[in-house]
Amino acid sequence: MENGLRWGAVLTANEPLALVETNVRWHLATGASAMFVFLDDPDDPAAEALSDITDCTVQLCDDAYWRARRPHKGRPASQMRRQTINANRAQNRCDLDWLFHIDADEFIWQDDDLAAELAAQTDPQTELNLPVLERIFPPGAQSTLFEGTYRASSDLTEDDAEAAFAPFTQFMKRGQYSHGAGKSGVQVGAGLRLGVHNATRTGSEGRQRRAAKRVSTTARLLHFDGLTPLHWLMKGLRYRQTPPDVQAAILQPHRAAQIEWLLDNATNLEQARSAHRTLFALSPERRAQLTRFGLLRDIPFDPARVLGPDCPDLHMAGFDADLMRRNPALAGVVST
């Protein structure tokens, strides 16, 4: 990089190889100097392929790893807790200037040079927030993993939110089915602690306090919340298999309501596909609703074009087959 600044990203993943590999390769091809992948499944078959990627550091989160981090407690039940521990371990061990904490299904899109923006940020106690755009599926059949357009996060009044998002307003927060908070990056070694969405600092009384935030003017976060109908169904079932106290901690009310609707309306794969179209597809009615409030964004995100021969197979069939192999317990409840 011309200004010498080095940035990268860290993620904790338990996903099909095609998604994680595309994420890593995309960021390395678009400016990241390093990527850090913590594999939540210690037997993840993706480890070997990811370790072969230059500038990608892979950590298997096995029992030995968690004993070293938490000698008396071991692996945290909460995925958010695991993500936070992993993100800050990467921060403490990397030689970057900036580190972003993202998920495997989130991709940093640059409208302008992110490195230049980072170099211009002088306050080391301020995080840089990447505002989120959530993918909306095409109205017809989906053939590859990243097709679609995007819905911007928003802070509409209650009446306007109902006009923009009905009949599923109760499943959304800030206009997103997942999260509207975006993700953050911090200057490495400045004393800020990476969280799932935001960074914190240690206050005068020793407690963690939310760090100051600046919203990026050059980059956004593209979120692919459920890459296929099967992926979406598996995510819902996985949430429901976590302990109730963990669900209460990690699922906000809008997300919990969405999952309840999913499980009520998708007892098999065909029903899941129908429910998925109802919730996620950009129907003419939904396009009109979102256009009225200026919430649609067209982003030419195309990993295959950027990565060329290094791009994994992004067709749905291979992704879903890998998903089924990786989730044998969940696959037993899905009738195909």
Rank of each mutant, 00 (worst) to 15 (best):
D112W: 13
D62H: 08
H72T: 11
C94H: 03
A116C: 11
V24P: 00
P76M: 07
L99G: 00
L96H: 03
P45Y: 02
E106T: 08
L28Y: 05
P16K: 00
D55T: 09
L99F: 01
D105Y: 08
D112C: 12
C56T: 05
M80Y: 14
C56F: 13
I102D: 05
L28I: 01
Q83E: 05
W109Y: 14
L11Y: 09
A49T: 15
Q110P: 00
A47G: 06
T57G: 09
I102S: 08
N86C: 15
M35S: 04
D55W: 08
A32K: 06
N92C: 13
P71E: 02
T22S: 10
W98D: 01
T122F: 10
T122Q: 14
A47R: 06
L39K: 03
A34H: 12
D103Q: 10
P71F: 11
Q91V: 15
G31Y: 04
I108C: 01
E21S: 03
P45N: 01
W109F: 12
W66L: 09
C56Q: 06
Q91C: 10
D111E: 12
S78H: 05
P45I: 01
S33K: 07
A49E: 13
S51P: 04
A119H: 09
Q121T: 14
D97E: 02
T122G: 11
R25E: 07
D123C: 02
V37A: 06
N86A: 11
N23V: 07
A87F: 15
I85W: 12
S51Q: 15
R93W: 10
D41M: 07
N92M: 11
D123A: 12
G74P: 04
N86H: 10
P16C: 06
N14A: 14
A68V: 09
I53S: 03
P71Y: 04
L17V: 02
N23K: 06
N88S: 00
L11R: 01
L39E: 04
L19V: 14
A64H: 11
E21H: 04
R82W: 05
M35P: 01
A49L: 08
L19A: 11
I108W: 04
W98P: 04
F107Q: 00
R82F: 07
A77E: 15
R75F: 06
E21M: 12
L17M: 02
A47S: 08
A34F: 07
A119R: 11
D95M: 07
P45R: 00
R70H: 13
